[in-house]
Design a binder for these strands. Structure first.
Lengths: 238, 238
DNA sequence: ACCTGAACACCGTTCAAGT
DNA sequence: ACCTGAACACCGTTCAAGT
């Protein structure tokens, strides 16, 4: 029951290579195998071509990774342009959810957005794109924030997104990811589905393990977002 | 005016290899050149030995990286054991600052602590160590938190640390890092010290660039930490 | 017991050469 | 104009061999 859907030009692109196609293909590859597994040679193979051909469209591997990030964040700018907000609260909420959707749809690519070295110190991950940051600053300024407050909000908002989404994406990506080791049967003091971590028999971690493993990503995100907005509101009204 | 100090057993360890020495050396290498640059061969060279010798003490590159993380977080447990706290607020404050100190002292190694795949879903970066998490859970339980609240605090506390420290470490690490490209002179529409980012002439980013580049890492960290503690206090008293 | 040489299967990237 | 073969300088890792 494999979906084939909208990716009919997957392999053997019949001689029509292009930068867009390379980046598309790279993103798809990363979604499946992670950025670590992406090599010029394997990517080329997916495209039915030799590795060296890619260098016509791309200056190298780093260029591809950067382009993938840009592609992902391009979607965020688009989303913000279509549904425009009436209040700064609405704007931040939409932006937060758009980025969260991105992280959930591309859990294995999101670490790139979140952890690649920013090109400049004012490009804070995961809002790692000039377009998005520009949009952010002009919008908040438009809602009456003065310079200091815009910058302050930018800082706290990015920290919030990074802290909440990177971890959630990692968990989400781990589930999706192919099993690397076929689970050695002999290490369990208790029923231990947690890979190679050995738990002492009388630990708090063990006692709280199930509760700790619960996924409350979404509601925690919502609550933390609300808290952040409240905090900003207080600053503004002062 | 180079400091030589306490690293007299740097290269050519005179035939006394050991796992600790390998991990030590790896951490020092990563502090200087980042984890990306670490190869078995170069690390071995630093130790005055061939690459294959390392496999006596270490199962491979991944094992080394994991051991470096463990070493770094081991220091956190120690710090917590020596100065023990009277209140949960004091505890969380000490822990937060200990992890922040770690991030600032090893900005190029900290991404490992923060972004490597956790071995289990309840090991949330950057508290990526069974010992630290166990310490955290027992301490808070000892201060009277019930199970749900301990777990909730664990979640929000880790998100807070990740969001604030990963970015700060990246900025801190970028300053320390060796210059990769010798800065092409011809791309500046304005005095542009920000690598290859080209700013449109009438952008908000350009106008706010200096303010955006200011480093308020520490005070933001303090403020956000206070806010978090306040929020927890509210939950507890309910 | 501890280290190594040689080898294997991979990398990214360059460049001259093919069509 | 677009693609490629061959080559270079690197990787991580294995294994039989040295001392």
């Amino acid at each position: 029951m494999e979906q084939v859907g909208s990716s009919e030009r997957n392999r053997r692109s019949a001689r029509g290579l292009s930068r867009d196609l390379v980046v598309d293909s790279a993103l798809r590859f990363i979604d499946l195998h992670g950025a670590q597994g992406l090599s010029m040679r394997k990517l080329a193979q997916d495209l039915g071509v030799e590795a060296m051909s890619l260098y016509r469209y791309v200056t190298g591997r780093e260029d591809i990774l950067e382009a993938v990030v840009t592609r992902l964040l391009g979607g965020v700018t688009e989303a913000l342009d279509t549904q425009l907000a009436q209040t700064w609260q609405g704007y931040l909420q939409t932006l937060a959810h758009t980025v969260r959707d991105l992280a959930m749809q591309h859990p294995r690519a999101f670490p790139l957005v979140a952890t690649r070295h920013p090109a400049a110190p004012w490009l804070r991950p995961p809002l790692r794109s000039l377009d998005v940051v520009e949009h952010f600053l002009t919008t908040l300024t438009g809602f009456g924030f003065d310079d200091d407050r815009v910058v302050g909000v930018y800082r706290s908002f990015t920290s919030f997104l990074l802290g909440h989404l990177l971890l959630e994406a990692a968990l989400h990506g781990a589930e999706t990811s192919p099993v690397e080791e076929p689970m050695d049967e002999g290490d369990a003091q208790v029923g231990n589905r947690d890979a190679d971590v050995v738990l002492p028999a009388d630990s708090e971690v063990l006692r709280l393990r199930d509760k700790l493993s619960e996924d409350h990503g979404e509601e925690e995100f919502e609550i933390a977002l609300e808290t952040l907005l409240d905090r900003i509101e207080l600053q503004v009204s002062q």
